[in-house]
Simulated assay, not measured.
Amino acid sequence: MAWIVLVVSGLLETAWAAALHASQGFTRLWPSVAFLVALALSMAGLAYALRTIPLGTGYAVWVSVGVVGTALVGMFFLGEGFSVPKALCLIAIVAGVVGLKVLG
């Protein structure tokens, strides 16, 4: 259960990052509210998951889900552009985190 919560919390990290962008520096109400809600839920889920998952591995998974998700949102929804080198870098992030889990 902790692993599912951890991955969902990572997805919520993507949500709060996207909401932060949409808030335009906290000048727009509803994206700002979405940011705060997603941030609180993401942190709460991370805290829950870290009760049973080792800190280094859990934090790395949480961050990598957020990083990869946020990069994909930027590429496919915010016009930041997709490229093979970018995709390879995201794959390297995922491979590194999988390595932490498998070798840990």
Rank of each mutant, 00 (worst) to 15 (best):
A44F: 06
L50T: 13
F35N: 08
T52D: 13
A38W: 10
V37M: 05
L39M: 15
G45I: 11
P31M: 05
F26S: 13
G10A: 04
F26T: 10
T57E: 05
L12Q: 06
W16S: 02
A49K: 10
L55G: 03
Y48I: 15
A17Y: 02
L46D: 01
R51N: 14
L12N: 07
P54H: 08
Q24F: 03
G25L: 02
A19K: 01
S42Y: 06
H21G: 10
G25A: 10
W16C: 05
S32E: 13
Q24A: 15
I53H: 03
G25Y: 02
L29I: 15
V33I: 15
R28Y: 07
A22Q: 10
S23K: 01
A15H: 08
A19G: 08
A47P: 05
L55Q: 14
W16Q: 07
G25K: 02
A47S: 14
A44L: 14
F26P: 10
V7W: 04
S42N: 08
A38Y: 08
L29W: 15
G25W: 06
T27Y: 07
L46K: 04
V37F: 05
T57R: 03
G56F: 06
A49Q: 12
V7T: 11
A17Q: 13
S32D: 13
L20T: 02
G25C: 05
T52K: 15
A34S: 13
G56K: 08
S23R: 04
R51P: 10
P31R: 03
V33F: 11
A49F: 07
I53W: 02
A49Y: 03
A18F: 00
Q24I: 01
S9H: 00
G25T: 06
A40L: 14
A47G: 02
Y48W: 14
L20W: 06
W30L: 12
Q24V: 04
V7D: 07
A15M: 11
A22T: 01
A17S: 13
L55H: 13
L29A: 15
M43P: 00
A34I: 14
R51C: 14
V8K: 02
A22F: 03
A34Y: 07
V33G: 07
R51L: 14
T52E: 13
G45W: 06
L36H: 14
A17L: 11
V8G: 00
L41D: 03
M43R: 01
L6I: 10
A49C: 09
V8P: 00
V8E: 00
A44K: 02
H21T: 09
L29P: 15
L12R: 05
A49L: 05
G56C: 10
G10I: 04
A17G: 09
F26A: 14
A18R: 08
E13F: 01
W16F: 15
L36Y: 14
T14V: 01
A44S: 12
G10D: 09
S32Q: 12
A49M: 10
Q24P: 03
L12I: 06
R28W: 03
S32Y: 10
L20S: 03
G10Y: 12
W30P: 03
V8S: 02
A34C: 14
G56R: 09
A19M: 03
G56W: 09
L11M: 14
A38E: 13
A22I: 01
P31S: 04
F26V: 11
A40E: 04
L39S: 12
S23T: 08
L36A: 15
V33N: 06
L12E: 06
P54Y: 00
H21F: 13
S9V: 06
G45S: 02
P54A: 12
L41A: 03
A44N: 00
